[in-house]
Amino acid sequence: MVVMTMPETRTVGRPNTDAETAFDTPWNVMVYNDPINLMSYVTMVFQRVFGYPRPLAEKLMLEVHHRGRALVWTGSRERAEWYVRQLQGYQLLARMERSAL
């Protein structure tokens, strides 16, 4: 879009974590339902941001639509932050949260 350079890697301060294991705890990227966003648009965004094949992107989109939210990715905090920024750049309601595991 617009200027299509790869994003510089800028890390916002680490969310407060008080456990030694915080570095190992996976982070979840969640996408929440929105009454306006088109289903086809959300599917396209999942394909673009994560490189998911269309069937998986559609499955996640439908989960967002029917259940109100979907876990779309789990992994390192830095990567989760990057994905949230990407998804919000496409104007999706995206958040990150520490995995319960």
Partner: peptide
């Protein structure tokens, strides 16, 4: 709506508002 809080952690969200939200707005 356009620049939602990215987490439940308010200090993190505050930094996000300063560092990331302006990038999104510019975009």
């Amino acid at each position: 709506r356009l620049f939602p809080a990215p987490s439940d952690d308010e200090p993190f969200n505050a930094e996000w508002r300063v560092m990331i939200a302006p990038e999104l707005r510019h975009l």
